[in-house]
């Protein structure tokens, strides 16, 4: 097996007495696109929060390119190459789109002294911001404040912020959440364009997106990985069909 870029060992998280994640052992290899699916409340967002460092793990360990990061704060994890996006847009709403992008790019800086130059003075960052905004077809809107963008555009920005620093691994929490199905497809193509050469771990209810992007699928059910496999294997898996079809096709309908 190739080296795992992101790996967890027996990762658990509980809130008070409620075990939301119990003993998750999971890994994602280089350049792999892994989808995590599971019904509402399965613990997908919590898993991402623990991976990203937004919530502390109750027990278990997390490794990023071989290095243990379980106890590191989110900013240190980012510097080691782990970035994430959020299920609910989590942006700098009152700042311009360009500023949002530049803030994400400067996030890669370790030192505060670097930060003392003019925001727009870094040529490499300016070029990168332009490249990404053009890729997202948002260049023309760069001076608009993010709150003024359409929801779909905000959704794109949400993802672009997490990709700006060229992370090794990116965690996308329901990237198409809240988008109408008609938009979601074009969105998948944009994500694909933006995430080449990156290990992508994402979760989604939208099966079109999952089968469009994923090389491998892991099914999370009540805080445990129920099964893992290629899209083909998972779609034939009896247990998965039971979860998704047996309880009504709630999940497959692409709700968010």
């Amino acid at each position: 097996m190739q080296t795992a870029v992101l790996r967890t060992e027996n990762l658990s998280k509980s809130f008070g007495g409620l075990d939301v994640l119990s003993g998750i052992t999971f890994s994602a290899g280089e350049n792999e696109n892994v989808a995590i699916i599971g019904p509402n409340g399965a613990g997908k967002t919590t898993f991402f929060n623990v991976l990203g460092g937004q919530l502390p793990a109750t027990s278990g360990r997390i490794f990023l390119v071989g290095q243990e990061v379980t106890k590191l704060p989110p900013d240190r994890r980012l510097h080691l190459g782990l970035a994430r996006s959020y299920q609910i847009n989590n942006l700098f709403f009152t700042l311009s789109l360009l500023d949002n992008m530049l803030l994400a790019l400067y996030g890669a800086e370790h030192s505060h002294l670097h930060l003392l130059r003019s925001l727009y003075g870094r040529r490499d960052y300016a070029e990168e911001a332009r490249r990404m905004l053009e890729l997202m077809e948002l260049w023309d809107k760069r001076f608009e404040i993010v709150a003024a963008l359409s929801y779909g555009d905000q959704r794109l920005v949400e993802i672009a912020l997490s990709l700006a620093t060229k992370p090794k691994v990116v965690l996308l929490d329901e990237p198409t959440a809240g988008l109408p199905t008609s938009e979601a497809l074009g969105f998948a193509a944009k994500i694909r364009r933006l995430t080449t050469d990156i290990t992508l771990v994402f979760c989604a209810h939208d099966m079109d997106l999952v089968f469009n992007l994923a090389d491998r699928i892991a099914v999370l059910y009540f805080g445990e990985i129920l099964c893992e496999g290629t899209p083909g294997e998972i779609s034939c898996n009896a247990k998965v069909q039971e979860i998704y079809l047996g309880q009504g096709s709630k999940g497959a309908a692409g709700n968010a």
């Binding site: 937004q54 704060p73 700098f92 009152t94 700042l95 670097h114 930060l115 130059r117 003019s118 925001l119």
Partner: peptide
């Protein structure tokens, strides 16, 4: 007007996201 100043505004607007973006807020 520096990147630091903008980062400070970022903290004001959304500190958790700044942390996820790699800032020691």
């Amino acid at each position: 007007t520096s990147a630091y100043g903008r980062a400070l505004v970022g903290v004001r607007e959304n500190e958790p996201r700044m942390r996820s973006l790699g800032y020691n807020t």
